[in-house]
């Protein structure tokens, strides 16, 4: 599937809702895995918190008024995560979705450039909130490669769905790359050198969420 095949297909409210549903599904599916990762270098609540937060969003999707935009969906996710997730993930992902929502506010459908804006604003929100930098062994290490890959793809003429696909792949690779790192931010930083050799759970949940976004987008274009 080249740029010509899908370049004109934007991502609309159906995609956004599907992203959240797939996100909730994948986080439920990987709940125990994320708990285990977090138990190794953190406090063990990440899988539980992310699952709880996204499950809380699901019933609210049905109440979205007609004419809602993708930004409205992301804002709903943001406020729900902030008020239901008790760990660091609530404020961090809440801020990410809030800033991402603001970046595409009012758009009924977003193109590849919109995907880049959304991802970049989300990443910047996380950095501003958590004050982590690349290489600190946090979710930023999944977000930043995703933003960079998305921008390169969009500049090269990729469709919105293709842009999300390369972003998701880059996030997954970024999560893998956290394994040897020594944590400098978050609860894992208390472990110092002992945090090396473990995957960062926040980077992994980011990889799962962007994978869900990409899967929802490719589902939309192929349907």
């Amino acid at each position: 599937m080249g740029p010509l095949g899908a370049a004109e297909v934007g991502l609309d409210i159906t995609w956004a809702v599907d992203w959240v549903r797939r996100g909730a599904e994948t986080l439920s599916e990987h709940r125990v895995e994320l708990i285990t990762l977090d138990r190794e270098i953190g406090d063990g609540d990440h899988g539980e918190n992310m699952d709880r937060g996204f499950q809380a969003v699901l019933p609210k999707l049905d109440d979205l008024p007609a004419g809602s935009t993708p930004a409205d969906v992301l804002k709903l996710v943001a406020t729900t995560l902030i008020s239901t997730v008790g760990g660091a993930a609530g404020p961090l992902y809440g801020t990410a979705f809030l800033k991402g929502s603001a970046a595409i506010a009012g758009e009924s459908s977003i193109d590849a450039a919109g995907v880049v804006s959304l991802l970049e604003a989300s990443r910047d929100g996380i950095v501003a909130r958590g004050k982590a930098e690349s290489g600190d062994k946090t979710m930023v290490d999944a977000w930043t490669p995703a933003v960079d890959a998305a921008r390169a793809a969009a500049d090269g003429g990729a469709s919105a769905a293709e842009t999300l696909r390369v972003a998701a792949d880059a996030a997954a690779a970024g999560s893998d790359a956290t394994i040897p790192l020594v944590a400098r931010k978050g609860r894992a930083s208390y472990l110092g050198e002992r945090s090396a050799g473990h995957r960062d759970p926040g980077a992994q949940s980011t990889a799962y969420l962007l994978e869900a976004a990409a899967a929802a987008a490719s589902n939309g274009t192929s349907a």
Partner: peptide, 11 residues
Amino acid sequence: DLGSAILTAET
């Protein structure tokens, strides 16, 4: 107390 408490307070 700990880091994420600050994140919640800032939010």
